[in-house]
């Protein structure tokens, strides 16, 4: 009699728990394995059937070119998010670096100098963010939110709120040229991801990024220079924004005051869709590329199907929520692995 209440619940709980855990683990594992690639394949199949023009070389190259800037921003952001940080300033950084490049070109600077100056501006933006986050230990969200605001303001001041055109932009080839039939922005995007992959997987710095994101305190005690790693990822994110600014301005042959507005959100969506955990430690550049492709294919396919841009936004938002749900399932699976 004494033991009845305890015993009655014991076995029942013991049976119910593994069953629930097993199902959840199964879903999580399936989501992790098939997640991005599966979703991308599914979208491609759906649009290939419903929109005949979708599955053509021209259209797919067009999609790749359209996602190039977001994807490049996503590459830098992947590193930042892997350290459990965030960089909200990349969209505004695209605007300001694009302005730097166009302004110098209009002023007569050689194309190489204009591009180099834009990249340097990107590095500077990243360095400021990095120092504030790593040295002064400010919250990355606030630091980069502030940067988003002041960089946009700088761009407005620089352009005086007007679009700065250049019909003879020296580096226009970076936006319009092709290499062996592949648009240059796509080539640059692939190069950025290749370099990023090498950095993340074949250098000590890359191991440190994984380590700092996975367990910052353990990294510190292991003698890893945590602050330098943190500052480094923001600098790299700024560099990616600079590359994005060059390509975006080359595409437009102008510096538009609100160029890049909202790009940070698409880039973050791509990173999360790609399976990088917002909690840090886990991430993949290949995933980010696939995540950007999902967003690009979705927009392209829906446009081909004549879905209004209003609805497109709704669908994109739902896709982002689904991505976060996937992230949740994945991290829950991970905590179950580590007792």
């Amino acid at each position: 009699m004494n033991e009845t209440p305890v015993l009655a619940d014991g076995p029942a709980a013991a049976v119910a728990r593994p069953a629930r855990g097993g199902l959840r683990k199964g879903v999580a594992a399936a989501a992790e394995r098939a997640g991005v690639a599966g979703a991308l394949a599914l979208l491609v199949i759906v649009f290939s059937v419903s929109a005949p023009y979708f599955l053509t070389v021209d259209n797919l190259l067009d999609v790749a070119r359209q996602i190039s800037v977001t994807a490049i921003l996503g590459a830098g952001l992947t590193l930042v998010i892997m350290t459990a940080g965030i960089d909200l300033s990349v969209g505004s950084a695209v605007g300001v670096t694009a302005f730097v490049a166009v302004r110098l070109s209009v002023g007569g600077a050689p194309a190489a100098a204009a591009v180099a100056a834009a990249l340097a501006a990107g590095l500077l933006v990243g360095a400021v963010n990095g120092v504030l986050v790593a040295r002064l230990r400010l919250a990355a969200f606030i630091v980069t939110l502030a940067a988003l605001t002041y960089l946009r303001g700088l761009t407005y001041v620089g352009t005086d709120g007007k679009t700065l055109f250049s019909t003879t932009l020296g580096y226009a080839w970076l936006g319009h040229g092709t290499v062996l039939g592949v648009p240059v922005p796509v080539v640059v995007m692939v190069a950025v991801f290749a370099a990023g992959w090498y950095l993340l997987n074949r250098t000590v710095f890359g191991r440190w990024v994984h380590a700092v994101g996975g367990n910052a305190e353990a990294a510190r005690l292991a003698g890893i220079p945590v602050r330098r790693v943190l500052a480094g990822v923001y600098v790299l994110s700024g560099l990616c924004a600079g590359i994005g600014g060059v390509i975006a301005s080359a595409r437009l042959q102008s510096a538009v005051p609100d160029l890049g507005t909202g790009y940070e959100l698409s880039a973050i969506a791509a990173v999360v869709l790609g399976g990088t955990s917002l909690l840090g430690g886990k991430g993949s550049l290949v995933g980010t590329l696939a995540g950007a492709a999902i967003i690009g294919v979705l927009v392209n396919g829906l446009t081909l199907l004549d879905v209004s841009t209003f609805y497109q936004q709704i669908i994109q938002g739902v896709v982002i929520v689904l991505a976060v749900v996937l992230d949740r399932l994945r991290t829950r699976g991970a905590t179950e692995v580590n007792p």
């Binding site: 380590a211 996975g214 367990n215 292991a222 890893i224 886990k282 580590n338």
Partner: peptide, 14 residues
């Protein structure tokens, strides 16, 4: 520990 990293990476870290 860095739970998601390999044994080898955990040994060599830092």
């Amino acid at each position: 520990l860095f739970p998601w990293l390999s044994i080898a990476d955990n040994v060599c870290a830092g």
